[in-house]
């Protein structure tokens, strides 16, 4: 609807087109207002707070300070006021990135064959499989995470079965480890990987496989040179949908990590709660945002790089 036709528009048509464009801008105003109030506003508050001083009982005191920002990675020595690298903070950041990456890779490794399987079923079966994939969404995340807890805890289902089968003597200590957080996140985010992959594979023209084999490609070459590049939009979408919320995960590490294996989300919550350091919480939130944005930019650029040919 936008823009005037290229060849010989009458003045009336041009005026109408211009009016339509102006009208279109006006119509998008509610969305713009909502975006300003709901996205840009809070972001600004977060940035401003990160440069303020912590109040004694939470909240902030007005006064400019970089302390929150240095506090992300350093602690100030009580006696000589020098800055020391804070290992605990660094390990939380690293653990968050590591676990999120691992979750993304693993959900892809499991999700791709799953999505392929569903997309290659007959039309009627497909609906059933997709329905099964979405069933977990019907239950509250907290309940589902507690259910995982029930399975992997020391006296849980998994350990009881393994001991019952005589495979192990002592229960496996899975709960409250990074492994537990990883298992929980993989379970929670798997559908978010499968659905966009399915959408991409569903659009994939299976006749391209025959064309590939016909042109002397091996199975692996067909996968790498044809399937992956063609369904790449789905791979990118799925990876983003898993990586971004995984990096900011709160419930899963809280319940399955037991408060010891914190991720950024828990660390931020701590600052607004017991930590009573709102500026640090705000600075960490901005940091999280920056990490996510940077990761996405690098990833999308990398993924969109054309395959070079001779």
């Amino acid at each position: 609807m936008s823009g005037a036709p290229l060849s010989g528009p009458s003045q009336a048509e041009a005026a109408l087109a211009a009016k339509t464009v102006r009208g279109g801008w006006l119509l998008s105003l509610p969305a713009l207002v909502l975006l300003a109030v709901a996205a840009v506003g809070p972001l600004l508050i977060m940035v401003v707070y990160s440069f303020l001083l912590p109040g004694e009982y939470g909240n902030v005191e007005w006064g400019f300070s970089f302390d929150a920002w240095t506090g992300i990675l350093f602690t100030r020595d009580v006696f000589d006021d020098t800055l020391r690298l804070e290992d605990a903070h660094l390990s939380i950041l690293l653990r968050s990135v590591n676990l999120s990456l691992l979750t993304t890779i693993f959900t892809f490794a499991v999700g791709f064959p799953t999505a392929w399987f569903i997309a290659t079923r007959p039309q009627r079966q497909r609906a059933l499989w997709l329905f099964l994939i979405t069933i977990p969404f019907w239950t509250n995340l907290l309940i589902r995470t507690l259910a995982i807890n029930e399975i992997i805890r020391a006296e849980g289902l998994l350990n009881n079965i393994l001991i019952g089968l005589g495979l192990i003597d002592q229960p496996l200590q899975i709960i409250y480890t990074d492994t537990a957080v990883f298992i929980g996140m993989t379970y929670v985010y798997l559908p978010l990987m499968v659905l966009p992959l399915f959408a991409a594979i569903d659009r994939f023209d299976m006749r391209l496989l025959e064309a590939g084999y016909d042109l002397y490609a091996t199975r692996f070459q067909v996968l790498r040179r044809i399937i992956v590049p063609v369904v790449k939009p789905g791979i990118i979408a799925g990876s983003i949908l898993v990586f971004v919320p995984a990096l900011g995960a709160y419930v899963t590490p809280r319940i399955l990590g037991g408060g010891k294996q914190m991720m950024i989300g828990n660390f931020i919550e701590l600052q607004f709660g017991q930590g009573r350091n709102w500026p640090l919480g705000a600075a960490l939130s901005v940091t999280l945002l920056v990490i996510v944005t940077a990761a996405l930019l690098v990833y999308v650029r990398f993924a969109n790089r054309e395959v070079r040919h001779g």
Partner: peptide, 28 residues
């Protein structure tokens, strides 16, 4: 099929959508 010195022109053409014309021709 990938071991037979025989090539096919498909009814649907089955051109690779992510490749250019030259890259399609170069594939085999």
């Amino acid at each position: 099929p990938n071991k037979r010195p025989v090539n096919t022109v498909f009814q649907s053409y089955a051109l690779f959508p992510h490749l250019t014309v030259a890259q399609n021709v170069a594939f085999g």
